[in-house]
Write a protein that binds this DNA or RNA. Structure first.
Length: 587
RNA sequence: CGGGCUGUAGCGCAGGGGCUAGCGCGCUUGGUUCGGGACCAAGAAGUCGGCAGUUCAAAUCUGCCCAGCCCGACCA
């Protein structure tokens, strides 16, 4: 491609709002352009990178037996009603009516569509196992898009769906994906870790997320360096130290101006672990009649711990949680800042293991300025008991007991064992060897293509611009011509193209400085400079992005030398690839 | 959805009741230059986010709306 003809251009200054370096360079190098909040166009350079990522994904999906298909972005709402997600998902799912008034949705994922499709195609065990995938646009009306391509509303996703006759089959396909994903990310040059995750709105039991560890990530990952346990904090287990004691009688004490655990512990001179904290949330539930209703939830946890809302939401099976307002708390006979489940009414009490296993905790008296000492679960109040505590930096690993660390991560892929939830509700059944009708056992597997590119640009840049790995860079070679006369540049360009090498050829009439700066900004892995000086020696200058080392290459050897570099650079990526297998004891 | 900030030329910004709305970069034309964001000259380009109001007069003041960004809520 000639740069004089390139549709996009580079920007000297980043548009405002480009807060991360990766995003800034994507914009400045002319890879992407924003159209609206969380809505982006891919320009030629960005589009080429995205295509390369997709190609890698296709190859690895094909390798594990995937067959590519394409499913519609617009779905009739019926199938979403049948699985219940039309009702259970909030505004993130965009709905509209067609001209006849039929309910339609913009697919945010394709479990419904693929299950409806499989229901028509699959009727015998002989057709199983099966695996289909697509690279398709998704729309999710995220309440707050941000961070460039990391969190957008419209995006491209590779989603695959496995169909099996039984759970063992599903596990096999799941394992294959588990490894294939490491190959995909590895070939792109991104190191990720797989962590156990919450299955969220997908339902199902086992799920993993692939995390690119970075401070810009919005997920918190808990990692045990000792034994290798990793999990999203939303489900991360940890060992809680309990403090069992003989129960003592309740005692009401005056505790002015102590609405927080910290203030209370200081006022009474007791450690925070001797207190019970009440966290009030309003949960949205769907009743048996499909009607939504709200109910206050009081989560009780030991004062030295924090509530993990995802765990809590799971424990109470709420569709949604939000912080409760003060008057909503008072409506249930409790007092914000001095609250406890003792004396509460019309609400759901959830007690963390920590308050079940530790006695004589100081909790609110539901009266401003007063607390109760020696409250005890079971004697003074009851409710659902569960682990609803958030693991933190330093929490003890539930497997080996060592202190764990926490890290931020970006979720670039996920895999779910769905089971039969979708096949049952959409009537996707097959006949087994014995002629018995059974629901197909399904798995669902996603990779965010744009998000992956965003992570790659976060990982691969320096002060001057991008330096994407050769496997995903839009072109392999940046050919910079500094000479105004002679046919050499055109000949070299043609020669490289004819050899099947991907070349971005800077044939513009700009000054050398402009060309060098743009070459660094776009950051293609191999850079070739043709100058008067080099031509006098019948050579060009070749350098690799990042190492700054320049060497002269004779004109006659350019193609072979470039091919050798491409081979080596590609090899370096594949050599450093680490493919892990699904740990046998995984959740 | 709550809180905050910002909308003026392609990008980055200045101007903040008064007469033809500016600057840098970019763009166009001509010339010079030619290995690290060159120089000279001449140009093109903005209904100042929208609507309404106040005023003799609004980019400027007020209200409403829209859009984008940041924090939070939220989120496969």
């Amino acid at each position: 491609m000639r740069m004089s003809r390139l549709f996009s251009r580079t920007l000297r200054q980043a548009p405002t709002g480009a807060d991360s370096k990766g995003y800034e360079y994507l914009l400045r190098a002319g890879f992407i352009k924003q159209l609206g909040a969380g809505i982006f166009s891919a320009l030629p350079l960005g589009f080429r990178s995205l295509k390369k990522i997709e190609q890698i994904i296709r190859e690895e999906m094909d390798r594990i037996g995937g067959q590519e298909i394409s499913m519609p972005v617009v779905n009739p709402a019926d199938i979403w009603k049948q699985t219940g997600r039309f009702y259970s998902i909030d505004k993130e799912l965009s709905r509209f009516k067609d001209r006849v008034g039929r309910d339609m949705v913009l697919a945010m994922t394709h479990e419904e569509a693929v299950t409806a499709l499989a229901a028509q195609e699959i009727d015998s065990y002989r057709q199983l196992p099966s695996l289909v995938y697509q690279v398709q646009t998704k729309w999710r009306d995220d309440p707050r898009p941000r961070a460039g391509l990391i969190r957008v509303r419209e995006f491209t996703m590779k989603d695959s769906y496995s169909f099996d006759a039984d759970h063992e089959g599903l596990v096999k396909q799941y394992e294959r994906h588990y490894e294939a994903y490491f190959k995909i990310f590895g070939r792109c040059g991104l190191s990720v870790i797989a962590v156990g995750s919450d299955s969220g709105m997908m339902g199902g039991s086992v799920a993993h997320e692939y995390m690119y560890l970075s401070p810009i990530g919005e997920d918190t990952i808990i990692i045990c360096d000792k034994c290798g346990y990793t999990a999203n904090r939303q489900i991360a287990a940890f060992e809680k130290e309990l403090f069992p004691e003989e129960m003592l009688p309740l005692e009401k004490v005056e505790t002015p101006n102590t609405p927080t655990i910290k203030a209370l512990a200081e006022y009474l001179s007791i450690p925070e672990r001797k207190t019970a904290k009440a966290v009030f949330l309003m949960g949205t539930f769907t009743g048996e009649d499909q009607q939504e209703y709200q109910k206050l939830i009081i989560a009780v946890i030991r004062g030295d711990l924090e509530v993990e809302e995802a765990k809590l939401q799971k424990a109470v099976r709420a569709k949604e949680l939000r912080g409760a307002a003060d008057d909503e708390i008072r409506a249930c006979s409790m007092e914000p800042g001095y609250g406890s489940p003792i004396g509460a009414r019309d609400c759901i009490v959830v007690a963390d293991d920590s308050v079940v296993g530790s006695q004589n905790l100081t909790a609110g008296a539901n009266e401003p300025g007063y607390h109760l000492m020696n409250t005890n679960y079971g004697r003074d109040y009851e409710g659902i008991t569960a682990d609803i505590a958030a693991a933190q930096e330093g929490s003890a690993c539930s497997v080996c007991g060592m202190p764990m660390r926490s890290s931020r991560g970006v979720e670039v892929g996920n895999i779910f064992q769905l089971g039969t939830r979708y096949s049952e509700s959409l009537d996707c059944y097959f006949q087994d060897v014995e002629g018995k009708r059974k629901p197909v056992v399904m798995g669902s597997y996603g990779i965010g293509v744009g998000r992956l590119l965003a992570c790659l640009t976060e990982e691969y840049h320096d002060g001057k611009g991008l330096k994407l790995p050769i496997t995903v860079a839009p072109y392999q070679v940046h050919l910079v011509s500094l000479v105004k006369q002679g046919d050499e540049p055109e000949e070299i360009y043609k020669q490289l193209c004819d050899a099947g090498i991907e070349v971005l050829y800077d044939d513009r009439k700009d000054s050398p400085g402009v060309k060098f700066t743009d070459a660094e900004l776009i950051g293609l892995p191999i850079q070739i400079v043709i100058g008067k000086r080099t031509l006098q020696e019948d050579a060009v200058e070749l350098s690799l992005r990042g190492d700054g080392e320049k060497k002269l290459v004779p004109l006659s050897e350019i193609t072979s030398v470039v091919q050798e570099h491409i081979r080596k650079l590609t090899e370096e990526i594949t050599d450093s690839m680490v493919v892990e297998s699904l740990p046998p004891s995984s959740p």
